[in-house]
């Protein structure tokens, strides 16, 4: 069987090499669409606002990937505790790391857009608050991992924390929404429930948004593949080191 296994691995590697290239292409096309192809938002007053609006095409997909990665890491954490296969731990860790990267992107691009539009960098709007809390949950997860040396315990504790953290996200969301309906936000969100509601989004704007969502989802899958690969190799090196030197690197 070893030969067919290698073939299988090879064909999978080939598939993901191809997907990586496609993903890169999609992001470039997404950039073109977001920066040039999409029309200017018609109802915005100043040039600054109109430029800043284009952040939206990458900001929303990044938030989407952030939440997708959170759901992913919760599922992988449960799978790890049930099956105890190291694979799921690696998947959960990869998903959290990627999610943190995307949430950081959300947290950076958000204020850059908010300043010219809302005239404040930050407001405790539900969406901003939940992003900040998710970001902190991700950081907590990685700090917990970083503080444990024992590999099996690291995986187990991280899975437990990942599950509790994912439970708290819907609870947080509910609480923050109620919190804000009593104290209205500085700028009310749009009627369609979108952060940039009231733009009256034209077809090209929507097309660009959906294209970017698609491109980012492919990008997430590609990143997951590479991160999982990296972690596998890291652990192999670790195991080899241990075998040769008899110490943990």
């Amino acid at each position: 069987m070893p030969k067919s296994l290698t073939q299988q691995t090879n064909s999978r590697a080939n598939f993901f090499t191809g997907l990586t290239m496609i993903s890169g292409l999609l992001i470039v096309v997404g950039l073109y669409m977001a920066l040039i192809w999409a029309p200017e938002a018609a109802n915005l007053q100043t040039a600054n606002e109109r430029y800043a609006q284009r952040i939206f095409y990458f900001h929303v997909p990044a938030a989407w990937i952030g939440f997708l990665a959170l759901i992913g890491s919760a599922i992988f954490s449960i799978l790890y505790l049930v099956t105890r296969q190291e694979r799921w731990d690696i998947w959960a860790l990869s998903s959290v790391e990627i999610g943190l990267a995307f949430f950081t992107m959300v947290m950076v691009s958000g204020p850059i857009w908010a300043k010219p539009t809302w005239n404040v960098w930050w407001t405790w709007d539900p969406r901003l608050t939940i992003s900040a809390i998710c970001w902190l949950l991700y950081v907590g997860y990685l700090m917990l991992r970083g503080a444990i040396d024992h590999p099996e315990r690291q995986a187990r504790f991280a899975a437990v924390y990942g599950i509790v953290a994912s439970f708290s996200v819907p609870a947080n969301w509910l609480a923050i929404r109620w919190w804000r309906t009593i104290h209205p936000a500085v700028v009310a969100p749009g009627q369609n429930g979108n952060t940039v509601g009231g733009f009256g989004m034209s077809d090209r704007i929507l097309d660009t948004l959906f294209f970017c969502l698609f491109a980012f989802t492919i990008f997430y899958i590609v990143l997951m593949y590479h991160r999982i690969n990296l972690e596998n190799q890291k652990r192999q090196v670790e195991a080899l080191k241990q075998r040769i030197l008899g110490v943990r690197g």
């Binding site: 809390i133 902190l136 949950l137 950081v139 907590g140 700090m143 917990l144 503080a147 924390y161 509790v164 953290a165 708290s168 609870a171 947080n172 509910l174 609480a175 923050i176 109620w178 919190w179």
Partner: peptide
């Protein structure tokens, strides 16, 4: 590590 892990999770509790 405890506050770093615990505070984000208990935000709904504190808000309520």
């Amino acid at each position: 590590l405890l506050p770093i892990m615990l505070f984000p999770v208990i935000v709904p509790l504190i808000l309520g």
